[in-house]
Write a protein that binds this DNA or RNA. Structure first.
Lengths: 189, 189
DNA sequence: GTGATTATTTATCATTTGTCAATGTTTTTG
DNA sequence: CAAAAACATTGACAAATGATAAATAATCAC
């Protein structure tokens, strides 16, 4: 079940399949049902996930019960409550399965071990952080300079999967607006 | 002029001063005047900067002439148009000096060279990406779940330097609102 | 399949934020 | 120092978004 991750790594790095399997062998395969929580708000996030198939979100609920979605991962994307994973401090968000999913997962312990032993593993980590950076960069940029409607149109243009596969509710929470606002935006088009 | 960077590295890593100087020797000292552009929108950003003293911002101007500030660096912080620096593609933002500044800078070429030669340099890069991740995480989170007033109060509580040292105009552009809105928020308190 | 639950849309009204304009204040520059 | 430019505040109004409620529509659980 690790072909997808291997392929992902081969695409991102120039390296042999032996090197790739050096990284991949540390991951283990799991399946997760819709609405399953891979980590809970308040707990230290000790795992990193790679989505083979399905959809997983990082989300949190504020004092008024309002949900917000910080990040969504589909096929061939990595997901974790990374601030918690990095620092070993409690997370402030959930990791919630959105669609029934097939995942590869690695524990923080194995991750650190891999980093200390393998140079390719370190390169993998750097590449992962770089990809994450680029993603966050655009997320910040769109929030800074676009209104809700423009952010919605940005997603349609640049990340259509999110618009197509998330429910309106989830999509609105990813955009940082209410369901009702998203309904109006879609109606007005 | 490299003591600050050395100290920064010693604080962040457990390593000897010889190891630190291995990284630091690749940086060179420059001074920059207020309003000086370290990189321009459309150009590939080929340098990374460490602020010894002063203040530098990453900002962009939209079609209506509206400025937005994506990131601000003060003393002991790194700054670059990192998406451009990483991928070697044209930047979509300026790097603008806010206060007269003393900086250390390293070219992308020397950075890559350092990465390929020194293991500590790779660790430095990982640490830098992690710090940047944490920063972006909070920036995204506040935009998703807080309104302008709450974001302003968040800054006062968690990053007072930004409120104290930026002009109202710059601060409002960092918060993603207009100067007028910020004025009203401050008046209402 | 049916009832219960959840999601979506629509409408109304309140609040926040943006736009434009006017004015006062501070900073820059010659 | 004085004029000019940039910045900050305030007010009036417009547009965007949130809150609440109600009516469908879709999905889930038994």
């Amino acid at each position: 079940m690790t072909e997808r991750l291997e392929q992902f790594l081969v695409n991102k790095f120039e390296c042999t399949s032996e090197e790739v399997s050096e990284v991949v062998k540390n991951f283990k395969y799991i399946e997760a049902a819709k609405e399953e929580l891979l980590n809970e708000d308040g707990n230290i996030c000790r795992n990193l996930y790679f989505v083979i198939e399905g959809c997983v979100k990082c989300n949190f609920i504020d004092a008024n019960g309002q949900e917000t979605i910080r990040y969504v991962a589909f096929e061939n994307q990595l997901i974790s409550s990374f601030h918690s994973f990095i620092k070993g401090t409690p997370s402030n968000e959930y990791i919630t399965v959105v669609e029934p999913s097939k995942l590869l997962t690695i524990s923080h312990t194995d991750f650190k071990l891999g980093l200390s032993k393998s140079s390719l593993f370190k390169d993998f980590y750097i590449k992962m952080l770089e990809i994450t950076y680029l993603n966050n960069h655009w997320r910040i940029r769109t929030f800074l300079s676009l209104d809700a409607k423009q952010r919605y149109e940005y997603l349609i243009k640049n990340d259509k999967r999110i618009v197509q596969r998330l429910s309106n509710k989830n999509l609105s929470h990813f955009l940082g607006i209410t369901q009702e606002s998203l309904s109006r935006i879609k109606a007005k088009k």
